[in-house]
Simulated assay, not measured.
Amino acid sequence: MSSITTKSSQIQVIAYGEAGFKEESIIEPEQAKKYLQRWPVTWVNVDGPMNAQLATEVGTMFGAHPLALEDAIQLRERAKVDIYGRHHFIVARMVVPGENIETEQISIFMGENFVLTFQEQPGGDCLQPVRDRIRRGVDDLDKHGPPYLVYAMLDSIVDAYFPLLERYGEKLEGLEDDIIVRPMNETVNEIHAVKRDLLILRRSIWPMRDVLHTLLHDSITFTDEELRFYLRDCYDHTLRVIEMIETDRELCSDMMSFYLSSISNRTNEVMKVLAIISTIFMPLTFVAGIYGMNFNTEKSPWNMPELNWYYGYPFALIVMALFVVVMLIFFRLRKWL
């Protein structure tokens, strides 16, 4: 299948039904009309840098509301759903595969026999499992209409968060071990980076809960009981993702508190050692200070007579050593050592 670029964007059409499927890249939006007339469900995906003129042309052809088109072009919307009669406009945030955490907006227009999607960036996305299901025809996706396709997209978008969160969970476990063994500033920087990424994910997935709640309770299109089972399952997955994000964020906060506590404990241990050393040397300094006054022993017999004593210097050292021993025994009895 060739990849044909239209005004810096790619238009891909996947039309399917019980009779099979047809997949093609098209040049002009008008070429999609023939699929709308022949196939029960037509999925038109506009992939790449958002082109306002192309988006307006494609959206108008499918009867999209002008306000919904404006939101799709702006690329600054949080996840939401707007219902225009039997047409639905859904905005979601997809996780972009890569080393750095990024999300992109996907705008979904759903009508009676079509699904129109606008993706913010070209390249890989998390909707490949949906395409593979259509190509294989291994489940009931080809027997249901556009609402089931929209569910499959939303479910794939939500499930794409799980591998990423598992990776962050493993990273936090390693950082926790580093904090316990050797707390360093670099570890704190990594924790801050993880917490910032989790905040991005939280802002992306949190509104999705409201989207699925609206589709379950306020939409007249998603009324099929079996489809509602699937939507509830997707809703549960969203809640699990939110809980995992909140748990990891709390873990980051706990790790920061533990790091600060470890640094404080290390500082206290250092200060404790220095205080003990200073305390031990206080009497030694006192003794050395006394014998450093240099009174003249010839003027008075009271002027340090031990200075002329044969054992005076060893006696002073023994006194100092006794001070040290006595203080160490005292510290040990008080459990300060």
Rank of each mutant, 00 (worst) to 15 (best):
I4W: 05
S9R: 09
V13Y: 05
I14P: 00
A15V: 05
E18L: 14
G20M: 09
K22L: 12
E30I: 07
W43Q: 01
W43D: 02
D47V: 15
N51V: 07
A52M: 06
A52C: 07
A52E: 11
E57S: 13
E70M: 01
A72T: 07
Q74Y: 03
E77A: 12
V81I: 08
D82G: 04
I83D: 04
V91I: 09
R93A: 11
E102I: 00
Q105C: 05
S107K: 07
F109T: 02
M110C: 03
L116V: 01
T117S: 08
T117Y: 03
F118R: 01
V130L: 04
R133D: 03
H144F: 15
L165I: 10
E170K: 15
E176R: 13
I180L: 12
E186Y: 09
V188C: 07
N189W: 11
E190S: 11
K195C: 08
L201S: 09
W206F: 14
T223H: 04
T238K: 08
E243I: 15
E246W: 13
S253V: 04
S253D: 06
F258P: 05
V270Q: 02
L274K: 02
M304E: 06
Y311E: 12
I318W: 11
A321C: 03
V326N: 04
L333E: 11
